[in-house]
């Protein structure tokens, strides 16, 4: 039997992001929802003010055709999810499924690592791509920052990658 005692194993909640070669800070205090519509999404998306594919508003990232992530502070998160239902959409909570990291001064590095153009990381833009072999959502922040969102189960893997990738 394989003895994995020597294995680096930790779930996202135990990973410390301090000291990573690419500076990363976990973002807390938000709830996240994955939003889709069954069938046509244009009307509902419009009603909710959801952005077009590849774009972001302060509270929503369009991560694919008809596919959004909502980010809301705890206070109005439930109301936001309810609005989705009213508009005919489906919202499921993914606050625990995903981890949100804000990467400092990261546009050049991420452009190099992903092959996406720098323009993809302007505030208001978002992209979904592969990094470290997993799916990540990247959203541009002010001052060259980039927000990275991915499955929390891979946190340890990503932590190691940030040290070795550049």
């Amino acid at each position: 039997m394989a003895d994995l005692a020597a294995w680096p194993s930790m779930h996202g909640s135990e990973v410390t992001w301090d000291g990573a070669a690419i500076a990363a800070r976990p973002v807390e205090g938000f709830r996240l929802f994955r939003v889709k519509f069954a069938g046509e999404s244009e009307e509902g998306a419009k009603a909710l003010g959801l952005p077009d594919c590849g774009h972001a508003t302060p509270s929503a990232l369009a991560i694919g055709p008809g596919d959004w992530l909502l980010i809301h502070p705890e206070a109005d998160a439930d109301a936001a999810a309810a609005r989705v239902t009213t508009a005919g959409g489906y919202a499921i909570e993914v606050s625990d499924a995903l981890i949100v990291l804000d990467l400092k001064d990261a546009t050049q590095v991420l452009s190099r690592l992903t092959g996406l153009g720098i323009a993809c990381f302007e505030p208001g833009r978002t992209a979904r791509t592969r990094l470290a072999g997993i799916a990540v959502v990247l959203a541009g922040l002010d001052m060259g920052g980039v927000r990275m969102i991915f499955d929390r189960s891979y946190a340890r893997h990503m932590r190691r990658y940030l040290d070795l990738a550049a």
Binding site: S9, M10, S153, Y154, R156, H157, R160
Partner: peptide, 11 residues
């Protein structure tokens, strides 16, 4: 880092 591996929340 080959084939990303996942850990349980209560690991």
């Amino acid at each position: 880092l080959h084939t990303p591996i996942k850990c349980l929340p209560a690991h």
